[in-house]
Design a protein around this nucleic acid. Structure first.
Length: 858
RNA sequence: GCUCGGGUGGUGGAAUAGGUAUACACGCAACACUUAAAAUGUUGUGGACUUACAAGUCCGUGCGGGUUCGAGUCCCGCCCCGAGCACCA
């Protein structure tokens, strides 16, 4: 009997599948479609590590199961190849990222193919390919035209030594990752996308999709919708009033705040604004302690948002002297502070501080000795802020006294609205999306800036002039889109990959490329030199898979109608907020402008699940620097792709992080070896054996368990069920010992065996094909039908009934499944052990759970 | 810090409409096969204690309380670990 030679078997069947195009998706089919999607990898120089395939194998199992269930399956793959590592490698070595990328993709492809994944390789896309990023640019142009893109000043991380803008990840403890210099904030004009315009839809449409609950929660929290009130506080200033009051007696300057607790308005004893708040620069001349304030702003600029909002750190702040605010409900003058725990990006960048009922304000008031006025009764504000909203009545609140907090929210808001001092508002945590990068290795932003067009606009904002312009051009004077026919704007070759001294992208040094003609006036104009973030290409790749070679459009409408939306999308937990949200946004936009047909619906992914990380052997994240990276190469070589796949699925719960353990893989390998040996033996002896199809309870149980576990992603218990089936417990088919003992008269349940092989095939596809062939079948196992089970055959007619005394197990008896309570009591009390426990005791209560247990309370 | 997960044998884990805790594997031990080793197979394997073996008792799911006839599972209060936090992908 030949030994299990995984190398030969795997090579043989991978060739066969490729030759037969077994996993090529048909664009037309009478079968129902099923679209499985995994997050395409970034082709890093290190190649694949054992963590990547966790997701790929999982959906490969699903894809193969769907094929066996009769679906026309699309399971594509591609490469998300723009990104920092290739660029940083280019800065270091001078090798063009395109060369590195090509090499890395070749490596990834070879590795992925060695795992026997049922990808449709004909549809592979690469985001750095001009035929691909042409459409990434096109989508941006459409957004620009629709008025969803605008340029604004944003702070970036700037290393003064490297003279380079840094990603947040490259900033470690406020210092540049490579040189250790302290990172500064630098203001830079950046392209933004108005994702906030879609906030409500991104939130509400979550109701219509099947995402893991915690993924929905992440999305909801990220969008962070909260209902509240905008309240206007008048700003007073002596000088200001003296100068202007006579001329403009009704002129007032306002400071707006957003609050979810307008009921506490009478308790507002000071205001706090973010360091970036424009009122500081606007009222400079009125601020009497300007140097102190500016000094504070300088300090604040060094900190990240994370440090600034850390609740455990002591809050800092400075009073802005010379200006005051007026609380609109009681006309009291209150001081204004600037403090970095207030973020400019949330709400209005300013708050009313109610120290009695907000803990951060309470801490701040204690530190700076500010008054704390209790306006909701029920707490003890001498020790901490009272933040509950459920109980408690208003006090110290004039006409609103005795109202409950909830009533007061509405009443006070209504009062403010009547006086035009406030407005009910919905606020979101979600911010617009910074879409510019001052980097080389990304899609060039396909826009042109014309100084003379801008000047023309500034001179006259005439309607006649504006009528020729699209929303983006109106919103961004001087900017205009490149004509669609001129796409793609190809990334030109540069000599050096570092950004320039001024913080511009390396493209800015290519004067010949930058200088161009204005498509509007024909005059001299400049190209945008910023590139897009890595997200741009990964936002919509799943649509390109549907029609990857189309030169006329992003994808053909009929094909989109057939394949979109994605039926099941699986990816890393780390992508469930940003990538998921961004791609939902882009898809919704494409749906709105009719690129994605209405029939596909407004959500790109019907179902989204996530897998946990695979950690290094010691439980730490795998990384090159820690030297704990395990690659699939040596595993596939020594144990085979099938063993690798079975182990990855068996090692633990799919949604949780788990350490890799090559020792543990041996269990999967041994299992497959046993299957190979036993089934080969049966195949060989088949002619001599008596074949009989037995009714077997176990195989029905196994079919049910494996079928359901694949759907719920409990792959570990599915593998376990396959092992149990094969080992044969419970007096059910055990294929092994009988072969030796009863050769010649052996009764083999071939239907159960074949069902078992089909159940195993998504997990260990090469082995299953090989054994299927050995059993005498000429056709591929993946052209068979997924087995079904009979619920009636699963239920045993006899069960073990547990007998408990006071909840503790004291005995077990075999009874009929349907046994009644009186019969069970009768049998239980006859047990010798139970008799001893019950002797001389009074039975107070009997609890009977049919088919499970009986419990005597004594 | 905020948001979201998780904590069960020596190890990875199984078990949630509250009902036999530790399935399935790894490791370890003994035995069989072998001149021997490896491989393979068989058996055993949560802890403590009692014991004449066959058996029996108590304790056990991060910690402390609670609800219940019964809690890994539900409630309250803690501790620890992981992921995300908007320019990594």
């Amino acid at each position: 009997m030949p030994k299990y030679n995984h190398k030969a078997i795997e090579r043989k069947w991978q060739k066969f599948w490729e030759k037969e195009n077994l996993f090529t998706a048909a664009n037309q089919s009478e079968k129902p479609k099923y679209y499985c999607l995994i997050e395409f990898p970034y082709p890093s120089g290190e190649g694949l590590h054992v963590g990547h395939p966790r997701s790929y194998v999982a959906l490969d199992i699903l894809a193969r199961k769907r094929k066996l269930e009769g679906y026309n399956v699309l399971y594509p793959i591609g490469f998300d190849a723009f990104g920092l590592p290739s660029e940083n490698y280019a800065i270091k070595t001078g090798i063009h990222p395109a060369i590195t990328t090509k090499k890395n993709i070749a490596k990834f492809t070879k590795q992925l193919k060695s795992l026997g994944l049922a990808f449709d390789w004909d549809r592979a896309v690469v985001t750095t390919n001009p035929n691909y990023y042409r459409w990434t640019q096109w989508i941006f142009l459409k957004m620009f035209e629709a008025g969803l893109a605008y340029k604004t000043k944003m702070a970036i991380n700037w290393c003064p030594s490297c003279k380079i803008g840094l990603a947040n990840e490259e900033v470690v403890n406020g210092r540049c990752e490579r040189c250790g210099t302290e990172v500064k904030k630098k203001e830079k004009e950046q392209w933004m996308l108005k994702i906030t315009k879609y906030a409500d839809r991104l939130l509400n449409d979550l109701e219509t999709v099947d995402y893991l609950e915690r993924i929905k929660l992440q999305q909801k929290n990220w969008i962070g919708r909260s209902e509240g009130t905008i309240i206007k506080f008048q700003i007073t200033n002596a000088k200001f009033q003296k100068n202007f009051k006579s001329q403009m007696p009704n002129f007032k300057l306002w400071l707006e705040v957003f609050t979810t607790r307008p009921d506490t308005l009478f308790g507002a004893t000071f205001m706090v604004i973010a360091p970036e708040h424009k009122i500081i620069s606007n009222l400079k001349s009125q601020i009497s302690n300007l140097s102190e304030v500016e000094n504070y702003l300088k300090q604040a600029r060094k900190k990240s948002d994370l440090e600034r909002t850390d609740l455990t750190k002591e809050k800092t702040g400075v009073e802005i002297k010379g200006i005051k605010a007026i609380n609109p409900v009681n006309n009291k003058e209150i001081p204004i502070f600037v403090a970095d725990y207030i973020l400019a990006t949330y709400g209005t960048g300013a708050i009313m501080a109610v120290p009695a009922h907000d803990q951060r304000d309470w801490d701040f008031a204690k530190k700076y000795n500010l008054p704390i006025i209790e306006v909701i009764s029920g707490g003890d504000i001498s020790t901490k802020a009272f933040t509950e909203i459920e109980n408690g009545k208003l006090i110290n609140s004039g006409q609103f006294n005795n109202l409950s907090a909830k009533e007061a929210i509405n009443k006070i808001t209504a009062w403010l609205e009547k006086k035009d001092l406030g407005k009910k508002t919905v606020n979101y945590k979600l911010r617009d999306w910074v879409f510019s990068r001052q980097r080389y290795w990304g899609e060039p932003i396909p826009l042109i800036f014309c100084e003379s067009c801008k000047k023309l606009r500034e001179k006259s904002n005439l309607k006649s002039q504006i009528s020729n312009l699209n929303q983006g051009e109106i919103l961004n004077p001087g900017w205009t889109a490149i004509a669609e026919k001129d796409l793609p704007v190809k990334l030109p070759r540069v000599k050096k990959y570092e950004p320039t001294d001024t913080g511009e992208s390396p493209l800015a040094t290519m004067t010949n490329w930058v200088k161009t003609k204005c498509p509007k006036c024909g005059g001299k104009a400049l190209r945008e030199t910023d590139t897009m973030p890595n997200w741009a290409g990964s936002n919509w790749y799943f649509l390109r898979y549907i029609d990857p070679k189309n030169n006329d459009s992003l994808a053909d409408k009929n094909k989109l109608e057939y394949w979109a939306p994605v039926d099941w999308y699986n990816g890393g937990m780390e992508h469930t907020t940003l990538h998921l949200l961004y791609s939902r946004f882009v898809y919704k936009f494409l749906y709105d402008i009719g690129v994605v047909p209405k029939k596909c619906g407004p959500e790109p992914y019907q179902k989204r699940t996530s897998h946990g990380l695979i950690l290094g052997q010691g439980g730490e994240k795998m990384s090159k620097s820690k030297g704990n990276v395990v690659t699939p190469d040596e595993i596939v070589r020594d144990y085979g792709a099938d063993s690798f796949r079975v182990y990855e699925m068996f090692m633990g719960p799919f949604d949780q992080a788990i350490p890799w353990d090559t020792q543990g893989l041996i269990g999967g390998r041994r299992f497959l070896e046993r299957v190979y040996t036993v089934v080969s033996k049966i195949a060989q002896d088949l002619k001599e054996l008596r074949i009989k199809n037995q009714e077997s309870r176990l195989i029905h149980k196994t079919i049910k368990k494996v079928s359901e576990d694949i759907e719920t992603q409990d792959y570990n218990t599915a593998v376990s069920a396959l092992m149990i089936q094969f080992n044969g417990i419970d007096n059910q088919p055990d294929w092994r010992p009988k072969i030796e003992a009863m050769k010649g008269q052996y009764v083999c349940d071939t239907s159960a065996l074949e069902s078992f092989l089909i159940l195993l095939s998504p997990f260990a596809p090469h082995l299953a094909e090989e054994l299927w062939q050995k059993l005498g079948h000429p056709d591929s196992i993946f052209n068979q039908k997924w087995p079904t089970y009979d619920e009636k055959l699963i239920a045993a007619d006899e069960v073990e009934l547990v007998i408990q005394i006071n909840g503790k197990v004291r005995d077990k008896i075999m009874v009929a499944l349907t046994i009644s309570q009186p019969a069970a009591e009768d049998l239980a009390t006859k047990s010798e052990k139970i008799k001893n426990y019950l002797a001389g005791k009074e039975i107070k209560k009997i609890i009977f759970v049919p088919g499970r247990l009986i419990n005597f309370v004594i």
